[in-house]
């Protein structure tokens, strides 16, 4: 469902603010500083960051291929390890039994159980590869508009957070009210009417 896919889904944003100084370099720095870290060989269960639209598993921004026409085109990648609950349960059960045996007690405190669970999750996370999800992003810099090719709430929320962190700019989702306020060119009189608007009852 990406930008170049035959079918896609799209959420629109207004980019609030401007990048001071050379824009291309600032965007490259933002993308590079917050590119996705691979967690396949680590204990982390989730990672997110920027990647390339053409090579989503090689997140390098050394060249300027992310700048196309008047757009910046890149992607948000969210990697997540999903450990099946039954697998966690099995290994936790074995770990708790082992710790009881080692301690010589037939019980463990709540904090000991919690530590055992964290240990099990860390060990399993090292053995399970992350599932990557890629969401394409098209940023029309001159028009201060950005398209995220996803309508998933989690992806949109992550995008908003990461974008602000990377470029020190704010994304405002364009939905009916913000589209009216920010894009429709309303007069002050129309804005006053909009603020006081109440639902229409079409049924008689």
């Amino acid at each position: 469902m990406g930008f170049l896919s035959p079918t896609s889904a799209l959420t629109r944003y207004r980019v609030e603010g401007r990048i001071p100084g050379p824009v291309l370099e600032a965007v490259r720095e933002g993308l590079t500083a917050h590119r996705i870290d691979d967690i396949d060989n680590g204990a982390e269960q989730k990672s997110f960051g920027w990647t390339r639209i053409d090579h989503p598993f090689q997140p390098q921004f050394d060249d300027s291929s992310f700048a196309i026409g008047d757009m910046f085109v890149f992607a948000l990648r969210i990697d997540k390890k999903s450990i099946p609950p039954k697998v966690v349960k099995k290994h936790l059960n074995l770990e708790l039994a082992r710790r009881k045996l080692e301690s010589g007690r037939d019980f463990l405190s709540r904090s000991e159980k919690q530590m055992a669970k964290e240990h099990v999750l860390n060990v399993l996370s090292l053995r399970i590869p992350a599932v990557p999800n890629v969401f394409d992003v098209v940023w029309h810099h001159d028009a201060s508009e950005l398209w995220c090719f996803s309508t998933q709430k989690a992806a949109n929320d992550t995008l908003e957070t990461l974008f602000t962190r990377s470029f020190k700019l704010t994304l405002i989702r364009l939905f009916p009210y913000t589209l009216a306020e920010l894009r429709a060119g309303l007069s002050s009189a129309q804005r006053d009417v909009l603020e006081k608007l109440t639902p229409t009852h079409f049924a008689e």
């Binding site: 079918t7 889904a9 799209l10 959420t11 309508t151 364009l174 009916p176």
Partner: peptide
């Protein structure tokens, strides 16, 4: 209506991407 998000967007066919 709630958010004016587009889904199932199919645009006219474009030339296939065969190389980088």
């Amino acid at each position: 209506g709630e958010d004016l998000q587009l889904s199932g967007l199919k645009v006219p066919q474009t030339a296939p991407v065969e190389s980088g």
